[in-house]
Computed example of a mutant assay.
Amino acid sequence: MSQTAEMNATAPLNVAKRNLRAALKLKLKDVSHNSILSQSSTVFKTLKTLDAYRSAKRISVFLSMPTGEIQTDAIVRDALRAGKDVFIPYLYKNPAAGPGLPARIMDMVRLRDVADYESLQPDKWGIPSIDPATIPERQRVLGDPDIQHSDSTLLDLVLMPGVAFDIEPDNGAVRRLGHGKGFYDYFLFRHRLKATSLGQQEFPALLLGLALSEQFLSPSEGPVPVGPLDQPLNGLVLGNGDIKGPLAAAPLNETD
């Protein structure tokens, strides 16, 4: 397929995604701060009942924007205090940038402890962010071989944000609409390649979305438009305590 034909084939999908993002942006503007905090607390309590979280040793957690999505502060603190290796997103210029490749890509870098997490400064979107000057001394999931042994690091669990979610009726997987930059999709593709190179299973990490109830689409609002590069999730935890997707069938544990 020529580049022009490929662009023509993906144009309707891109339009559908942009339209849904615009609709959700308006919808989420009506969600109060108190509701976001309450739903975030429910997601945290529900997450702690899942064996996928309790047994994970190396997890990545998105750090939240101030509005419009689940707040993950309690999750980060709990995971660090539980002794888990906690990795957070870090965006940087793609050293291999070229035709067909993204200009900026994402890695996951490890937090040292709670004090390290509390030292992060907000970026222009209000998201706590890693100081680039500290990157060389941090363990990274996709980083080059270094003294932190990044070359052998793989994740057990990836906690993911999104704009909208629903369920694929044919297989029950969770469909996710991201913010349109492709950071997670490309990261997961590279993580999968790394796992294969290390002789691990094809999908070494469970993918779990965290979302406000308003971000889960009803049949009349859906479906979430997805393409061949959009990675389905293993599960979704909603702000009302519901668990969607394959992980919904997993047994729950008593909380601490």
Rank of each mutant, 00 (worst) to 15 (best):
T49C: 07
L50C: 13
L50P: 14
D51M: 12
D51R: 15
A52W: 03
S55Q: 11
A56M: 09
R58K: 14
R58F: 06
I59Y: 05
V61H: 03
F62Q: 04
F62A: 07
F62L: 08
L63I: 00
P66G: 05
G68L: 10
E69L: 02
E69Y: 07
Q71H: 08
A74Y: 13
D78Q: 11
L80F: 00
G83N: 02
D85T: 07
V86L: 03
P89A: 01
Y90F: 14
L91Q: 10
Y92N: 12
K93L: 14
K93E: 12
N94W: 09
N94F: 08
P95D: 07
A97C: 12
G100N: 05
P102K: 01
A103G: 07
R104P: 11
D107W: 06
R110M: 07
D113H: 07
D113R: 08
V114Y: 05
A115H: 15
D116M: 06
D116H: 07
L120A: 03
I127R: 09
P128N: 01
P128Y: 01
A133Q: 14
A133F: 13
A133N: 14
T134W: 03
I135Y: 05
P136S: 00
E137K: 11
E137M: 10
G143I: 01
D144H: 13
D146I: 02
S150V: 09
T153Q: 15
L154M: 15
L154Y: 15
L154A: 12
L155R: 06
L157K: 04
M160A: 13
M160D: 07
P161W: 04
P161V: 12
G162T: 04
V163N: 10
D166R: 14
I167F: 00
E168N: 15
G172H: 06
A173Y: 03
R176D: 13
R176C: 12
